[in-house]
Design a protein around this nucleic acid. Sequence first.
DNA 1: AGTATAGATGATTTAAACTCATCTAGAGGT
DNA 2: ACCTCTAGATGAGTTTAAATCATCTATACT
Lengths: 283, 283
Amino acid sequence: MQVSLQALKAFESAARQGSFKLAAEELSLTPTAISHHVSNLESRLNVNLFHRHGRRISLTGTGKRLAEATSDGFRKIDSALEEVMKAGSAVRVTTTSSLAAMVLIPAQHEFEQANPDFSMEVSTGESVDSQSHIIPIRFGDASVAEDSDIISYESFNVFGAYGMKPPSWSNDSITLFTTEWKNRLLPDPPLAAWLEKNGLDGSNIKLKKLDQEFLGIQQAMAQNGLVFCSTTLTKRLLEANLLQQFETEPVKSDLCYYVPNKDSYETRSAARFLNWIEDIFKQ
Amino acid sequence: MQVSLQALKAFESAARQGSFKLAAEELSLTPTAISHHVSNLESRLNVNLFHRHGRRISLTGTGKRLAEATSDGFRKIDSALEEVMKAGSAVRVTTTSSLAAMVLIPAQHEFEQANPDFSMEVSTGESVDSQSHIIPIRFGDASVAEDSDIISYESFNVFGAYGMKPPSWSNDSITLFTTEWKNRLLPDPPLAAWLEKNGLDGSNIKLKKLDQEFLGIQQAMAQNGLVFCSTTLTKRLLEANLLQQFETEPVKSDLCYYVPNKDSYETRSAARFLNWIEDIFKQ
DNA sequence: AGTATAGATGATTTAAACTCATCTAGAGGT
DNA sequence: ACCTCTAGATGAGTTTAAATCATCTATACT
């Protein structure tokens, strides 16, 4: 006394639409299939689900009750399925505006080219965070993040527009853009450590602080000064000969990019994306 | 990009039970079938639903979410289905204790014999009325019930134990059991009309009132007197030579048996039962 | 280490689902 | 009133999906 789910699905559609023909269209079947399914259901359940007035049909009371429950049930299943399918067919990433603007968005096309099954969506801002299938790439304190979640430890260096003559560190008056995070809990960019490592005292450096790294990078490209920022963000611009670096040594920072609960992303698209982004950071 | 409902059902069971083997048992399939279904689902959705630790499995986050929704959905559908199946496989009737005791229960076996597909359940009392698939046969005022709902208009007559000598209506002192309904809105048994129709004045009749007709019938069978009651209840006892009637004429009453919203019972078992009970009343 | 068990994988079989051809009964138009 | 057109019913035949069988792998337990 088993009833098939497909028969129920056919019945549900016919009940909702009030017509076998329309149900057949909805399910990409022939009206005959619907008719068979419904009558099969009726005989298995020993119940009439539709009244037949010649070529018109209407639900019986029992039919109505069954239709309501099955509609609810299938709706629930369908919406969950849809969500999973969305998660499976696209990677949604949210991150800082700097990483998005300097790395993810420029590389978005490459990713989609290499992974034609998936599309990739990048968003910034705090709004739709933790929506379960959106991958957040956070920028934060390496000592706070889980080791296994960390994608890259950030190093910092100074960069300038491509083609400018290298500054004379000791004599010139230098404008240097750096970043003061909006979030005061984050470690500052390691400028002091950088100066020390490169044997500079910084007395002739005029600091200008912005709250996003990429704003400083844009200023540097606009020849308005140099920028002290993380190397990940500038890699692409160096390769594209839009920025250059000088004879200075980069310094490590306490900052890192990480994905909270990285291991909990099991969709294939997410796995593919995470591998891909880790490769990018490693290069 | 269609996923089959059976695959979802297999996944749901595996997720709930935490094992392909158990899911296979639950669905009367082989573990292989479950494995195929799940991996088919995973590749269609581009998502891993289970972690595989060698021979042990556990749900991924996505799997958990999908499992919850599908479980809910299928639960809903299953319970509706179960209710419909119950309604389809059995007739549940509730009615007065008199009709149940004198007519339905004695005939129950005949019905099941003639309709081996269905079982029949009889209950009395007001408790589990209107439970949607329970058919209530009410005893009431014919002017209040819908015409199309009425199964039979009741006639009344006097009956005595089989084998007793017919009473001498004018001389003997006669004990007559009759009924005073608990529900005071019901028309009284038409005793006055019966006396008139049979040319009796009733002066030598000692009335004893009980609140159920079948109680009076039992008294009559126990030779404790005669009973004035509806003819439907006594038909079977007359045939079985347990009761007899005399040279008196029956009278019509304002009482009837009816099934509220008779036309709304569309299960095959209910239709079969209603036809059957109408036949019984007609005979 | 050896055995037993859960699951994966691929080929084959089986059964369910679907369609096609044909038929019936209203509904709608003239 | 008649013809036509459409929705659905029915039965036989076909196709596809689902289930199994045989085989293999990894691992848990003795």
